[in-house]
Amino acid sequence: MPESHVQSRSSSSFADAARGVVAMAHFAGERHWVPATSGNFSVRIDGRLAAVTASGADKARLTEGEVIEAEISGPKHPRASAEAPLHLARYAADAAVGAVAHIHTLPATVLSRRHEAAGVLRLEGWELLKAFSGIQTHETALDVPIVPNDQDTDRLAALVEERLKVSGPAYGYLIAGHGLYVWGASAKDAIRHMEAFDFLLTAQLHEEAAR
Rank of each mutant, 00 (worst) to 15 (best):
A118R: 14
L86I: 02
E124D: 06
R79S: 10
A92V: 02
V97E: 12
K76N: 07
A89N: 02
P107W: 02
A93N: 09
E83F: 02
V120C: 08
A82T: 09
P107M: 04
A92E: 13
H104I: 01
R113K: 13
P85K: 02
P85L: 04
H87Q: 09
E124Y: 00
A118C: 03
R122N: 12
G119A: 10
I72G: 12
H102Q: 11
L111K: 06
H87R: 05
S73M: 12
G74Q: 14
G74F: 15
A96Q: 13
A82M: 13
H115W: 10
I103S: 03
L86T: 03
G74N: 13
A82N: 11
H77W: 03
E124W: 00
P75Q: 10
V100I: 12
R79I: 02
P107I: 02
E116G: 08
P85E: 05
R122L: 12
V120K: 07
A89E: 10
I72V: 14
A84P: 09
A101K: 02
A99N: 05
L88K: 06
I103Q: 02
A84D: 01
A99L: 06
T109M: 11
E83D: 15
Y91Q: 08
H104W: 01
Y91H: 08
G119T: 11
E83V: 00
A95M: 05
S112N: 10
L88P: 09
S112F: 13
V97Y: 13
V97F: 12
V97D: 07
V97G: 09
V120Q: 09
R90K: 11
K76I: 07
L106F: 15
Y91D: 12
W126L: 13
L86S: 04
E83T: 00
P75L: 05
G98D: 13
L86V: 01
A118V: 10
A84Y: 01
P75R: 02
D94Y: 05
H115Y: 14
L106H: 11
E116K: 14
G98Y: 07
